[in-house]
Simulated scan of single mutants.
Amino acid sequence: MTEYERSRTMPASPERVFDRAADVGRLDAWLPRELHVEMEEPPAVTVHEDGSDHDTAALLSARPEQMRLEWGTRDQGSYAGWLQVAGLDAGASEVTVHLSFFDDSHDPGGRAVTDALDTSLRRLEEQVRPRTGDAAG
């Protein structure tokens, strides 16, 4: 088994971050660009990977009271992950994403996974960053 974990501080409340991360209709806005999630009968989802043109049966569950998302493959049990949002002082949040590959043949390698996690966390931060209006000079 191989595990990866990355964290990022975001300038938004934990509620705002969790609500955006858990919005199934907006997952494509922060997940790796090659992954697309289609909701089925909750908690069932199908994950499509552009690179391999492969669909994977998965589960996705949100635990708002814990500000936590959990997911994993349905049939093979080869992959699982979670996202946890924690509040920090001054309305900021820390978001941690953890991935576990139980089958090494599904692990794309450390560099690919950490790059994807960092990019996803950056994209999520862009989604929750407060927007500033036009500044009067």
Rank of each mutant, 00 (worst) to 15 (best):
M1C: 10
T2S: 08
E3P: 01
Y4F: 12
Y4Q: 02
S7Q: 11
R8N: 01
T9E: 14
A12T: 03
E15D: 14
E15H: 06
R20P: 02
A22R: 03
A22I: 06
A22L: 03
G25H: 07
R26Q: 10
L27G: 01
A29W: 07
L31Q: 05
E34T: 15
E38M: 09
E41D: 15
P42T: 05
A44W: 13
A44V: 10
A44M: 12
A44Q: 14
T46S: 11
E49P: 00
E49M: 11
S52M: 08
S52K: 08
T56F: 10
A57P: 05
A58W: 00
A58R: 00
L60V: 10
S61H: 10
A62P: 01
P64V: 05
W71C: 03
G72T: 05
G72Y: 03
R74H: 14
R74F: 06
D75H: 11
S78L: 04
A80Y: 03
G81Y: 03
L83V: 07
L83F: 03
Q84S: 12
L88C: 06
A90Y: 08
G91S: 05
V95Y: 02
V95I: 12
H98L: 10
F102C: 06
H106T: 13
H106E: 15
H106P: 04
P108W: 04
V113H: 04
T114C: 08
A116T: 07
A116D: 02
D118R: 09
S120Q: 06
S120W: 02
L121E: 04
R122S: 14
R122T: 12
L124M: 06
L124E: 02
E125G: 14
E125H: 09
Q127I: 04
V128H: 00
P130R: 05
R131E: 14
G133S: 10
D134E: 11
